[in-house]
Design a protein around this nucleic acid. Structure first.
Lengths: 197, 197
DNA sequence: CAACTTACAAAATTTGTTATTTGTAACTAT
DNA sequence: ATAGTTACAAATAACAAATTTTGTAAGTTG
């Protein structure tokens, strides 16, 4: 029984979308809840039915930013056209690198909002890290099963993830945003694969 | 013919020391040239004989911070008790990691000052990066000559430096300051050595 | 003339005031 | 009960005036 013509979920969606739009247009510091509400034809107080506070709304924006990346990574995990398990791991890292790069480069305001609020302890960051670890562990386990790697999956994951941090950690990606670095990423990965054989 | 009882160089030294002291005590934002001058019994204008401006003084502090690390790295390069060239590279990275860790952990205000001003394009940062590259290239070349590595020294240096960035890039070191990570650093390095054989 | 000081303008920071935004609670319509 | 509104208090932000700090040029002293 909505008064806006939208269901609960639809309005919540619209709020997030509108927040993103205003972040892009005016910068994230200038996003006012009252403006968002006005855009959607409700009072600002109505937003509090959907988000605990302003920070929670901003977190929802960051979460979407992250979910978009997670989706791309999941696609790589499920891609049936990749037969070699090491190739799949490389592909996974390249997609991760490109996704972060693109976000940082073409959506700088959303990135800034993310960067301001995204402390490592935040729940949605933890979920992202956990998902990446789960996916990478499964990919590494396949490589071990295929006899292409030796060692404990957990340890290998840590090595791969840490050694490539410059290619996926947002602030590090920003640091070298102007440079083409995919080749170096691939070099590092294949050196490590060889070292793990 | 100084009026302070100190030579030019000595006064310059004292200015830097006093700046560091005030940064540690009150935080780097609260460092006033006028206070430093008062501490040393001169007027603030006298400082301009030694430093072009406030930023130059702060850079001198950061430069000292960096030089201290460079000195430790040089010691590793010259250490005659290390016979194995791969062991020397590992040692070099461990010393680099520990030095950065220590600075970030025990001198947080100086680190913040460094972090604020230390853009990658600054001259003293460039010198630091160049020195590290020179040293590491020489260490890698020795390993190649000893038959322990294969490939082009320049490429190997890039791989090693990038894959270990989490252990020496200041903001990355801060990110995991509470964790013991030397073991992981050594694991990454030995995996890469094996991959380069 | 080297190593400062003094005097002063420009820039940055702080302080106090006012306006806007955020968050909450009590209320209304379906 | 749900999905909002209205009304109001608390927190923030915006602005202007006062103060402090920074940077410079001209002057002083051993």
């Amino acid at each position: 029984m909505p008064k806006t013509g939208l269901t609960q979920e639809q309005l919540k969606e619209r709020v997030i979308e509108q927040t993103i739009e205003r972040m892009r247009k005016f910068g994230y510091e200038k996003v006012r809840l009252s403006d968002i509400a006005k855009d959607l034809g409700v009072t600002h107080a109505a937003l509090y039915g959907h988000f605990a506070d302003k920070a929670a709304l901003f977190d929802a924006v960051s979460e979407r930013w992250i979910n978009d990346i997670d989706r791309q990574l999941t696609d790589v995990c499920d891609d049936r056209t990749i037969s070699n398990s090491l190739e799949r791991i490389t592909r996974w890292f390249v997609v991760l690198h490109r996704a972060k790069r693109e976000k940082v480069q073409y959506d700088p305001e959303i990135f800034r909002a993310f960067n301001m609020s995204a402390q490592i302890e935040k729940e949605f960051v933890q979920r992202h890290l956990a998902l990446m670890e789960t996916q990478l562990t499964s990919l590494v386990q396949r490589a071990i099963d295929d006899g292409l790697m030796n060692g404990e999956a957990h340890t290998i994951v840590k090595i791969l993830f840490t050694a490539t941090i410059e290619f996926h950690f947002p602030t590090m990606v920003l640091e070298r945003i102007g440079e083409e670095r995919e080749h170096l990423l691939e070099q590092i990965l294949s050196t490590i694969y060889k070292g793990l054989k």
